[in-house]
Amino acid sequence: MKKKKTFKQFLGQESTAGYIFSLPFIIGFLMFMLVPMILSLYYSFCKYDIQSAPQFIGFQNYINIFHDSSFWKAMGVTCYYALIGTPLKVVFALIIALILVRNTKLTPFYRAAYYLPSIIGGSVAIAILWRRMFEPTGTINAVLSIVFPGITNFNWFGEGSAIWVLIILTVWQFGSSMLIFLSALKQISKELYEAAVVDGANSWKKFWKVTLPLLTPTIFFNLVQQTINSFLAFTQSKLITDGQPKDSTLFYTLYVYKKAFPAMGKSQMGYASALAWIMLIVISLVTALLFWSRSKWVYEE
């Protein structure tokens, strides 16, 4: 017959301590994540304007979304941004990491300097600075007109180029990916390179045959993380372009926001919730696709 545990014994258990220490996260998750998520799932089947009670309408929101040209536009813009911006960012981070892996006196300074944008890059101040820099009479055009005298007052915020203003901003925030690459680069053992040299490899070959294969797990990690981030990008689009012109920079999250909190008229919170759930499915699919591709190109020891 089992003896009943005393309270002290209960506290002494390893698992109890574990649960108590993770309690802040668990409470936070339940209150601020799980409850809103369940609510939003419910709202996505409702017509809900926040000011009056939600009305259940079944799948009507989802059906309307597929007939909504702005939805397809926002989805297209976001995919373009994620599929162009993320690889560019990862490649850029890798190149800078390769340069900064060598130890010179100034490397620590450069590492810090290049990391800085990824801390401040999502901030409002940078968004405003970016807008000022790229405006027709801004710094970027001033510099360009010196290098290419033909270019004057190029309108960066035009329909074709506005998205690139945002892509350049995200690529510029390569710092965190760079740091991860740097630590991965340092873990590649010297012996592999020495062996390669003995076999007569030049530095180009060393990069392609040794460095890159061993970095693939890190590249994979960065790619997954940055892709998810790109799909969720919001601040840049809201503050720098507000989706203009002609929705050519309308990020998906901004579209959700505009539906939920429109500048005028009633909130379409139910519609926005449905949009958000579609996004969750899309991100899950893209991430699953990346994981599926893992076995094809990621080298595992």
């Binding site: 994540m33 999502g122 901030s123 409002v124 968004a127 998810i228 981030n229 969720l232 990008a233 919001f234 601040t235 809201k238 503050l239 999250t253 926001y257 969750l280 991100i283």
Partner: peptide
């Protein structure tokens, strides 16, 4: 991870 990305963006929007 997904949700954190979202909330950070909202915070900055509120500041704006």
């Amino acid at each position: 991870l997904v949700a954190c990305g979202g909330s950070a963006a909202e915070d900055t929007a509120a500041t704006a």
